[in-house]
């Protein structure tokens, strides 16, 4: 399955950088405890050790409430870990989102008072990017997410899937080197999710960015990822990392490969017990 279909089109492989991926972001012994430890505080996460390799597509799956979103918060710098260290491109991440990190949230984060075009241009304008460059990047991004005909529309006129695409485009134009997505397709129907997954793969390939996707959908993780981290129930730890071995050039049709069913089944085997624990049903299975 590890065919080199993409070798000619992929800048990473041409440069020979891809086979020996470097650490792009790292978590070392990271824990997050809400409230006062030992005094009714909630131990939400960790300790977690995780290395995201340069340019990989990494997914995180885990039972609900296991701290997946906390993991993303800590990695992005939106929240500070109680213990441990987070680094991005070799520099420590401390309570501030570093330059080069983009985040797409589960909730609709479009700004209702701006048109689609202005929503996408928002971050570039605040960053003081040259207007001609903004024009170029936004026009490209609007086309990339298929919203050219809706550039002048307001979010209220769009469907949930289209709004999420606006958010993805808004992240894309900032040219992040690490893209974190927190269940971005969670609120969408199954078909739309498949299509959005393909778009995400295309984006990942074209930008060469490192992607970390948090999802509760095992098939989504199995389909999109190079590597999948499986989390335990709370406090969430990474109990297993699975390599899928998919070629870089891939899309949702990979679901018909033999390996896909095996990966999904393996994910579920790992997660079943944890999900029962999270649901308060531990020991109920045989």
């Amino acid at each position: 399955m590890k065919a080199n279909v993409a070798a000619k089109r992929d800048p990473h492989e041409e440069a020979g950088a891809y086979p020996a991926p470097a650490a792009h972001a790292e978590l070392k012994g990271v824990s997050r405890i809400y409230g006062v430890p030992g005094h009714g505080g909630v131990h939400a996460l960790g300790p977690v050790d995780l290395t995201l390799r340069q340019g990989e597509f990494f997914s995180v799956v885990g039972p609900s409430g296991c701290g997946k979103s906390t993991l993303l918060d800590v990695l992005s710098g939106l929240s500070v870990p109680t213990e441990g260290a987070v680094t991005f491109e070799g520099k420590p991440v401390a309570g501030k989102v570093p330059d080069g990190v983009g985040v797409v949230f589960q909730e609709d984060a479009t700004f209702p008072w701006l048109t689609v075009w202005d929503n996408i241009a928002f971050g570039l304008r605040r960053a003081g990017v040259d207007p001609a460059e903004i024009e170029r990047r936004v026009n490209y991004a609007v086309g990339f997410v298929g919203l050219k005909d809706f550039a002048k529309a307001y979010p209220v006129q769009l469907s949930g899937g289209m709004r999420q695409r606006v958010c993805i485009a808004r992240t894309l134009v900032m040219r992040p080197r690490l893209i974190l997505l927190d269940e971005p397709f969670g609120a969408l129907d199954a078909q739309t999710r498949l299509i959005m997954g393909d778009e995400l793969l295309k984006l990942w390939r074209e930008t060469g960015a490192t992607v970390m996707l948090i999802t509760h959908a095992l098939d989504e993780a199995a389909m999109l990822s190079d590597r999948i981290g499986v989390m335990s129930s709370r406090p969430g730890r990474i109990i297993e990392e699975i390599e899928t071995g998919w070629p870089r050039e891939r899309d949702s049709r990979i679901a018909s490969e033999d390996g896909f069913g095996q990966i999904t089944a393996r994910l579920w085997r790992l997660l079943r017990e944890e999900s029962l624990k999270a649901a308060g049903l531990a020991g109920g299975g045989s």
């Binding site: 992005s76 989102v97 700004f111 605040r126």
Partner: peptide, 27 residues
Amino acid sequence: IPPVMLRSARVMRLSPPQLVSTIILPA
């Protein structure tokens, strides 16, 4: 104001005056 908007503002590294003028006031 939905918290996700404020989180987006932090991801885009807005300064406090930018946060007020471009997110909080219009929202």
